[in-house]
Write a protein that binds this DNA or RNA. Structure first.
Length: 478
DNA sequence: GTGCCTTTGAAGGGT
DNA sequence: ACCCTTCAAAGGCAC
């Protein structure tokens, strides 16, 4: 992310917040977190550490009251005291923290995004009423896919939102099969991610991950109420629920394959822009009376570029915390795990592009269209096939001050931006809000100040592509 | 019912 | 190191 160059003078937040620097910061998270904890900085990391510490001790107490062995007992003991104190305070707060989203949706509240710590909502999990068997030996739990599945249509919460939500969605029992393949330290945690000693070592500065409240609250943990789901865990879609007698008839291989199919998907943590979109989508929809996400996302993309560094920094920081939390929750998870789950198009697409004459690339080649920008009329469904030419890369996109500056030095001019070729699909009159002649927000005004639809600027556009565009425009009008 | 569209960022594999 | 691909959210739309 080039928008955020180094050298920001902000205290504490003056680090580079772009993606590469995020990584650096993330890699140093352990020390940073440790320092924050020690330095008593009132930040989310401290809350997390405190809560984790308190939960660790709760867990250990439940396991027999064994103290913390080893040299780290002292430090953890302090954290324990702190954590218990905080936990006790938060177990009976006068007022529950407001859902983050409410704050985010109000522009005037965005500055206080971190006033309520990211992980403070962990405490909310403690408010879940314990099951009847709480405190007793864990009983086999029925599959929670049905019972605890979020209502259909309920948008998935980000980690941040989830742990700040007063009504976090319940968890599926088998959060992931991954932990099944890992050496389990305790069968009680089989429903969750176990933390092996190796994975412990991966988190030297954090309390063992199974002390995370969402895990501690698992039904398998004595004394803890019902399992709380992780928002990134999504039960597999489809009708995989089988009757138990059916399962018994399955062969082992089948059941294995079935387990694979039933494996809940652990979603990727949201990046900064995704978090921004989640927050601003409703606002844009309200302002523009648009609902089509593709158009909304175009606007949001422009507004994202129009954001100041400080504003973007909030989301980069939020995304960093999401990734951090995600990493702690799922130490062995890889984004690769979800490859092919959304769409199995990698190989198919590859095959298609090499064999199917009707595929976008082939089609464009046949008609002499620009692979990046030209419309692909002959394609049946694709209006724009290739977004980026190999080697051209993405627009470095320094933060533009206005719409005209959306083009970047050394990059295609705005009118060559692929988005502009979507104008026939999302005409200006549609992107503009008829209910609001004058946009209320500057960002929106820049976002909506789209160029009028027209053929791409020469010399990139060929006559053919122009004709295709015109046809496309006529088709849209019709 | 399924996949596409559209955006940016992150991550992993390949070269 | 760089490039490419995929996925993350969202909801209308096309097939």
């Amino acid at each position: 992310m080039p928008q955020l160059d180094s050298g920001g003078g902000g205290a504490g937040g003056g680090d580079d917040l772009g993606a590469p620097d995020e990584l650096l910061a993330f890699q140093d998270e352990g020390e940073e977190q440790d320092d924050k904890i020690r330095d008593s900085a009132a930040g989310p990391e401290r809350d997390l550490a405190e809560l984790k510490s308190s939960l660790v001790n709760e867990s250990e107490g439940a396991a027999g009251g064994a103290g913390i062995p080893g040299a780290g007992a002292g430090a953890l003991g302090e954290a324990e005291a702190l954590g218990r104190e905080h936990a006790a305070q938060r177990l009976f707060p006068d007022k529950l923290p407001e859902p983050l989203e409410d704050g985010l949706k109000a522009p005037e509240c965005t500055s206080g995004m971190y006033k309520e710590t990211v992980y403070s909502a962990f405490n909310l999990l403690m408010h879940y009423p314990p099951p009847s068997g709480a405190g007793q030996h864990p009983q086999p739990q029925p599959p929670l896919h049905k019972a605890n599945q979020p209502p259909h249509g309920v948008p998935q919460l980000s980690l941040y939102e989830h742990f700040n939500s007063p009504h976090p969605t319940p968890a599926p029992a088998d959060i992931s099969q991954k932990q099944v393949h890992r050496p389990l330290q305790t069968p009680d945690l089989s429903g969750f991610y176990s933390l092996t000693s190796g994975s412990m070592g991966q988190l030297p500065h954090t309390v063992s991950w199974f002390t995370h409240p969402s895990l501690m609250l698992g039904s398998s943990v004595p004394g803890h109420p019902a399992a709380i789901p992780h928002p990134a865990i999504v039960p597999p879609s489809g009708k995989q629920e089988l009757q138990s007698f059916d399962r018994n008839l399955k062969t082992q291989a089948e059941s294995k394959a079935e387990k694979e199919a039933k494996k809940p998907t652990i979603k990727k943590p949201l990046n900064a822009f995704m978090l921004y979109m989640k927050e601003m989508r409703a606002k844009v929809i309200a302002e523009c009376t648009l609902k089509e996400s593709a158009a909304i996302n175009q606007i949001l993309g422009r507004r994202w570029h129009a954001l100041s560094r400080e504003e973007q920094a909030k989301y980069y920081e939020l995304a960093r915390k999401e990734r951090q939390l995600h990493m702690q929750l799922y130490p062995g998870w890889s984004a690769r795990d979800n490859y092919g789950k959304k769409k199995r198009r990698s190989r198919e697409k590859h095959q298609e592009s090499t064999t199917d004459p009707g595929s976008p690339k082939k089609c464009r080649a046949r008609f002499g269209l620009n692979q990046q920008t030209d419309w692909c009329g002959p394609c049946r469904r694709k209006k724009k096939c290739i977004r980026y030419l190999p080697g051209e890369g993405r627009c470095p996109s320094p933060v533009p001050s206005d719409d005209s500056a959306l083009g970047c030095p050394g990059s295609p001019a705005p009118q060559d931006s692929p988005s502009y070729h979507l104008l026939p699909r999302f005409p200006t009159e549609l992107l503009a809000s008829p209910a609001e002649p004058a946009p209320t927000s500057p960002g929106l005004s820049t976002a909506l100040s789209l160029p009028t639809p027209g053929p791409p600027q020469a010399p990139r556009s060929t006559l053919q592509s122009t004709q295709v565009q015109q046809q496309e425009s006529q088709r849209q009008v019709a």
